[in-house]
Amino acid sequence: MGQDFIRRVTTEDFRAVARALTIVENDSWTYGEWWSVISGRLGGAYIVGLTGWPGVGKSTLMGRILEHVSPDDGYVGVVAVDPSSHRTGGAVLGDRLRMMTTVLQPNIFIRSLASRGSQSGVSKATLRAIDIMDAAGFHWIFVETVGVGQTQVDILELADAVVLVTAPGLGDEVQAIKAGILEIPDLIVVNMADRPEAHRTVAGLRWALGHSPENRGRIIETVAVKDVGTAELWSVLRTLQASNASAVIKERRRARQRRRALMFAEEMWERSISTALSTAEVHELLYGALAETNDPYDVGVQIVRRALEYLSEEEVLGRNSK
């Protein structure tokens, strides 16, 4: 599909947004083709990353936040990522089931994504999805990630604000913050805060963050199933969004450009390599390695050379490089 299509993708037409998301989820080529249109339309959305270990109630919390969204808040998009089965490649995507109460609200759009294998794959497809929604004119984009760890770092590069969701008794994230492993998120939500051991979690986090008033405000206690504290969370997020021009945001958006550049490089390279691998010449070289007539090291070098030739000769990632 050409650039005409992506020009028509706006929040006025959720069906077009949905179709565009399917395309970029599966195909970075078309995304490259669209990039010149997309890039001119980015920056309007405020992107919030929602991260935390499985079982802390991220989806329920997300569903509650959506219940507090009013028509005045503009278009709100959610990208919910769930893991794929390593064995079969399939997935059960159940996040949005916890966001059903607002399904008919005309300014809310939710899309489920399967992680489909590699961690870096998650962030690349997610980044493309975010870009489509941003370009379409969404005012808010929430990204609910699979878990923490590596993706936690990724989400810092994808989002304007990061909300870490935790629950009493888990402690892992608290420990990680204490140990300085995790960068400090913009907000920390202690969900299930009606559990008896919640005060200990909150105290531990306060201690880890230090006692400045600014850091004190970063911890929000919620009980998502009972809709406690979620209105406050939404209002804090809106305040954060209002300070959109801050240096931190600019820094993060620059980081996203770096991320895109790396993504393009990776995708172009993968494509060139796979083009090279499909040629008869390379097949012959590989057969030589198999038959022990060719040295594997030399074959490797020659494949890379072929790939480089393709990269300079051919159309790459939706645009002619010449």
Partner: peptide, 10 residues
């Protein structure tokens, strides 16, 4: 009392 949201575990 509110409506119950099924945790819908599968």
């Amino acid at each position: 009392f509110g409506e119950y949201q099924d945790p819908a575990v599968y």
